[in-house]
Structure formats: structure tokens, C-alpha cells
Design a protein around this nucleic acid. Structure first.
Lengths: 206, 206
DNA sequence: GTTTTTATCCATCAATTGTTGGAAACAATT
DNA sequence: AATTGTTTCCAACAATTGATGGATAAAAAC
């Protein structure tokens, strides 16, 4: 049985999918509270009632967006896993940095949505939290910081989180940092990659 | 001539100062849009009109909060500068990490307010931006990554930003990461410090 | 071709938002 | 004591919010 989300993804031209796409864009730009259902409806080019007809509550739409992006991230992580097998830990990190930076740089709303999730105090971001916790473990193993899923130390997890976080702020904060560095968009990406490699690689080098 | 902010700080029991304090708490907890002027008034225990009598527009109050925290950060950075002179770059980093983690851990709203600033696309966060740009240069020199204020390379700035960012997400995202690591508040702080040192120190060690 | 289901819009709802006017209480000055 | 200025609250404002009921069109099923 296909879920509503799967159905929407099957046909990307369906109204449900178009709404989801606009919702992802707007939620990723302004966050949950600052995004109004009318903004999303306007972006799609439909009446607000039509939006509610397809998606019901705003919260449900947000949940679907989170599932959408966490799924995309999982695929990216799998891509990294595939590329790094057999390589040294330095090379692994460099590949991971390159892939994630390229992906997030072209999809900054993903970075934003994850960072927005850090602020929530209530347990509303439970989906995002569970998925990220899972991915942290997967990456810890893929990077050679742990042997099996059952025995991942607090240190190993914390280090993966630190690496992951380093990337996010540079993406979400582009409008904040790029004027400071006074570089163009393309050069900014290069500087970010170089900086992350400079910081992260020596720590994990044996 | 004393500015309104300075006046409010001179007498921390003044209504203006009490409102600023609550505003800082609430803005730091929910961000600008999600914080209502009524929430702040309620936190102070006054009518909403009284709040407007003292502060005028919501935006002005937010600006005052930002000036308040950026000023506090400047003092912390000066404290670090004082403590690290003459020390090796490794020791410098360890001191900086300890001081900033201790400070932000007890004032998480500071970390939140800065991170919230990263999201803004419009030039509304101009105060925060200017202050942070200045501090990045100051720290670059204090950490020995640059000689004088005029000649700070893009790389040096980017590295300071990376270090700075690493701290923030662990603070703001405590409710997100601590359940993942399954540690108590006190141990979390220790893990964060250790992780940051593990990641950051080797990169700058000659 | 008629009926039934699906999809879209218009109008509207109650609640909440930032903000203000004006009355009353309070304090300071004369 | 009377007057002036300062501070506080109550009530209300227009605008915006998430959400819905109902009319209407379009498509599907019969």
C-alpha cells in the first residue's frame, strides 16, 4: 500500500506533489511558524482551500516535508558510503565533504530545515530526530569510527555530529558569511570545502 | 550621553531593563517571529501597553537585545584574549573552547540568537552581522592566524568561522543531540568540550 | 445522458498578531 | 493642596493567521 507521500512522489506533477514541493521551499526558507499556508498556496498558484483539501493540517504538511528531505539525505549518505569503501579515513572525509557540500549548496532548504529542528524544545521534531540519530550511527560505521551498530561510543557519535554540523552552518549562513569573506558564490563553495577539510581531516588522521 | 540601552543596564531593576531581559529570554527561545510582544509582557508580568510605552516597536526591542548579547560576547572574547597571550596555539584553542562552552552553556539564548541570525535573507540583522564580522577579525589575530587587522586572508576568517560555528550547534541543539548521546546535562558539556578539542586542535597544531 | 465522485474556489470563521487611544493611578513639583 | 508629569492598565483597532462550509465546475462511473 502506498502512503500519501509515496503517491505524491510517484507523480511529481500531481497537485499534492506540487504543494509538497512549494511547502518544502517555503518551510526551508522561513521555518515552520513564519511560513503561512497562504504563502505556500500562492507559490503553487492555487486557492488556500485547495491546499487544505489535499493536505489537511499545516503540521501534517510539515511532517511530509521532513520525511521528504530526510529520505533524500539518506540517499546521499548511501552514495557517500558507496564511494568511500576501501579508502583511507582522510580520503573518506574529503569525499564526504565534497558530496555533502555540493548537495546542500544546491539544496540549502535541506540544511535550513535541519537547523530549524535544533531549536525546538517540544517533541514535535520527532521524525527528524529519529532519522538523524539513525544516520549518525550509520555514518560512524562507514567512517570507521565504530565496528557495529550496537557498540557506538558517545565519543564516536559526538564526532560525527560535529563534522555534520560544521557543514550545515556554512550553507545556511551563506548570506551571513559570504559578505564577511567577500567572495562570489562559486568561490565561497570552494573556500568552505577547503576550510572543512583543513579542520576535519587532521583530527581523524592516524 | 547614555543611550537607552546603557541606561537600562545601569539600573537592572528598571522596567526598561526588566523588559529587555525578558525579551532576550523569549527571542532567544523562539526567535523573532515566533515571539509575541504579549509573551514578553506576560513574562515581565505587565500589561502589553506598558511594554510599548517603554520600548515602542518590537523591532527596536529586538535590536536592543542583539546589542546586548553582542556586547556580552565581546567581553567574553576579550577575556579569552587576555588568557591566551603567550600560550601555544593548542593551548589557546583549548582555553577558547572551555571559556566559550561554559559561557554559552549557561546562556544558550545567546547561541540561539546568533544562529537565528544566519537564516535571515533581508538585511535586518545588520547589527549582528557587523559585530560578528569585527569579532572574527579580532579572534583571527588573537589566535595567531593573522598579523594585523588589514591583512586577514579569506582562509583565516573562514577557519575562525568554522571553529565558532562548531560550538554553537552543540549548544543550540542540546535538546536534539543529548538524547542521541544519552548523557546527562553535565556529561554533555564535557563530551562537547572533548569533541571540539579533538576536532579543532590537531588542525591548528604545527 | 445521468449520476456520482473529485477537485477547485469564494466567503467566512474565530483566534491571534502588532500597535494605539484614553482613562486612571501614581509620583514629583510647585 | 493643586498641578504637572510619569507610568500603568483596559479596551479596542485593523491585519493576518489556520482552518472550514458550501457552491460550483470537471471528471469518472454508470
Amino acid at each position: 500500500m502506498a502512503t500519501r507521500l509515496e503517491k505524491a512522489r510517484q507523480d511529481p506533477d500531481s497537485m499534492k506533489a506540487r504543494i509538497l514541493s512549494s511547502a518544502r521551499k517555503k518551510f526551508g526558507e522561513y521555518g515552520y511558524v513564519a511560513t503561512t499556508t497562504r504563502m505556500i498556496a500562492k507559490d503553487v498558484g492555487i486557492d488556500i482551500s485547495t491546499l487544505y483539501y489535499h493536505w489537511g493540517e499545516k503540521q501534517d504538511m510539515y511532517e511530509a516535508v521532513i520525511m521528504d528531505v530526510t529520505d533524500e539525505i539518506r540517499i546521499k549518505f548511501q552514495e557517500i558510503e558507496r564511494k568511500v569503501t576501501g579508502k583511507s579515513v582522510s580520503i573518506r572525509l574529503e569525499i564526504a565533504i565534497d558530496v555533502m557540500c555540493d548537495y546542500l549548496f544546491t539544496h540549502p532548504e535541506v540544511s535550513n530545515l535541519i537547523l530549524f529542528g535544533y531549536f525546538n524544545k517540544d517533541k514535535q521534531e520527532v521524525t527528524l530526530h529519529n532519522k538523524m540519530a539513525e544516520y549518525v550511527s550509520v555514518i560512524a560505521i562507514a567512517m570507521g569510527l565504530a565496528e557495529d551498530k550496537q557498540n557506538i561510543t558517545v565519543q564516536a557519535k559526538a564526532r560525527i555530529i560535529a563534522v555534520w554540523n560544521s557543514v550545515l552552518n556554512f550553507i545556511t549562513g551563506e548570506n551571513f558569511f559570504r559578505p564577511m569573506l567577500d567572495v562570489e558564490k562559486k568561490e565561497y563553495l570552494a573556500v568552505v570545502k577547503e576550510t572543512l577539510k583543513f579542520i576535519l581531516v587532521p583530527a581523524f588522521k592516524k
